[in-house]
Design a binder for these strands. Sequence first.
DNA 1: CTTTGTGCAAAGGCTTTGCATGCTT
DNA 2: AAGCATGCAAAGCCTTTGCACAAAG
Lengths: 135, 135
Amino acid sequence: MSERQPARRTTRQQVAVAEQLRDQTDFVSAQELHSSLKDSGESVGLATVYRILQNMASDGEVDVLRAPDGEAIYRRCSTGHHHHLVCRSCGRAVEVEGPQVERWAAAISAEHGFTDVEHTVEIFGTCADCSAKHS
Amino acid sequence: MSERQPARRTTRQQVAVAEQLRDQTDFVSAQELHSSLKDSGESVGLATVYRILQNMASDGEVDVLRAPDGEAIYRRCSTGHHHHLVCRSCGRAVEVEGPQVERWAAAISAEHGFTDVEHTVEIFGTCADCSAKHS
DNA sequence: CTTTGTGCAAAGGCTTTGCATGCTT
DNA sequence: AAGCATGCAAAGCCTTTGCACAAAG
């Protein structure tokens, strides 16, 4: 009884957002997603985009992280726990895993008496393509 | 000629902010810092607090990270590279190190052709004191 | 038919910016 | 005296919220 069954209704807007995310391999902000949808002819209100993304996030269907400027960016998340390597120039994201990091985080937390922990690992850099362009 | 010498002028406000940070062991937001300063009788304009914090951050004198809600939080940073374990309830922060994580990040980045990388590792959890209170 | 989701616009919170003044150098 | 730093207030941006209407079950 701690498991909540949100029982959300299926709407055109939710489907549109989900599909738009399915086509995206990189992180996108709510605003970008909103624009893309408008361009696709599947217009959805901005507030609704935010609400849908929030729902998807709390249902664990998307990853949310914060860009350095504080904007929230979202991405359809594959199953399992992982982290991201994001190009700060073009936004390209690579999913990476690191068992060692998981273990380290768990150990450190336990050592300091922290419980109910969550960790975020974000690596921002310049990808090969972009550093080539800047030659 | 790539090294910039900012040559900032020394002002009462900058000293006040620096000292306030020196007394803080936890991460604080610009707004909190602004309040603390007002309480200390060393009033500093909010915009100025933001400007000083930005300068200190780009000079590498403080760590900046984003709270889950997107607010920027700052902390005087000790020398060397490290990460933080932050209590999501009381804000208490513990500085931690993890050579393994550094190595992992470097390896992953290289493997994917990323250069000029920076990584952020944030562990949010509930510290022992806070979980005791919630009994 | 009832309830939940959506749209629009307004409000909210954090941060930045413009401009005149004060203070450091 | 010259120029950067500060303060205040206004503007900007992203995000959330209120309320009436539309749609799902």
